[in-house]
């Protein structure tokens, strides 16, 4: 469970930093984008934990796997969803005859991008209480606290890895794909630990996600050129 916790925390912060960078590409003013993204992220983490607390603790593991599936899909396709949707909205409104200076060309996109930040934060916020509950069932309160500490460690590792490796060496497309793949790996580890939940469909989904992640990393250059052509060509 320690490795699962590190992986999910790592992925969570990396998604948010990738999103901040996507926002900076489109809107500029990097410091403001990062600051707002981190603030929204922390807020939605708390909201996610709160929603989980109110929802009750039934079917926690199923919920955890659903969260991982959502985060994996969102993560691998992150730049396409966020940047692609921004361009698609712009082109759509321009085709409808909206003026170049209209607020319609930026506000829907702004709302969409910040909603993705909130969604990822909410989902990530629900992850930690579930992991702590699982640890508590196994090893009591001490184990639960250990998971809390490991979660912070995973966040720290993600925050270091992003500027030094993920954005610097891999770029946004491959970085998002790799991170989504790591989410899938975390889900795999949970399925191996809790075999009662290990269904064929889940294995297929997360296995396929890992393969897709690998394909995106290897084909990063082509995918990036396609995205750049669509966004700026």
């Amino acid at each position: 469970m320690a490795l699962v916790t590190i992986l999910v925390a790592f992925c969570s912060i990396v998604y948010e930093l990738l999103l901040a960078q996507c926002l900076a590409i489109v809107w500029g003013n990097t410091v403001v984008r990062y600051s707002l993204t981190i603030g929204l992220y922390l807020f939605s983490l708390g909201m996610g934990a709160l929603v989980f607390a109110y929802r009750g603790k039934e079917h926690s593991l199923s919920l955890f796997l659903q969260i991982e599936a959502a985060l994996t899909g969102l993560g691998i396709l992150l730049p396409f969803i966020v940047l692609g949707a921004d361009q698609a909205l712009r082109l759509g409104f321009l085709k409808l005859g909206v003026a170049h200076s209209s607020w319609l060309l930026w506000l829907p996109s702004w709302i969409l991008m910040h909603s993705v930040i909130l969604i990822i934060g909410l989902l990530s916020g629900a992850e930690l209480p579930i992991l702590m509950d699982l640890a508590r069932n196994d090893g009591g309160e001490k184990a639960a606290h250990r998971i809390l500490g490991i979660d912070y460690l995973g966040t720290f590792l993600g925050a270091i890895a992003f500027p030094l490796f993920i954005y610097d060496r891999l770029g946004i497309v491959a970085g998002a794909a790799l991170t989504g793949g790591l989410n899938a790996v975390a889900a795999f580890l949970v399925l191996r630990r809790f075999r009662a939940y290990a269904t064929v469909s889940r294995y297929c989904f997360f296995g396929g996600a890992c393969l897709l992640s690998l394909a995106f990393v290897l084909g990063e250059q082509e995918l990036r050129h396609l995205l750049v052509e669509f966004l700026f060509g």
Partner: peptide, 27 residues
């Protein structure tokens, strides 16, 4: 960031260390 010019590095590192330190404080 101003002292080093590296926005992404220091924004990321600072928030990561800050969150980790909060965790240590809780411990």
């Amino acid at each position: 960031v101003f002292l080093t010019d590296e926005i992404i590095l220091w924004e990321s590192l600072s928030i990561g260390l800050f969150i980790a330190a909060i965790g240590c404080g809780i411990f």
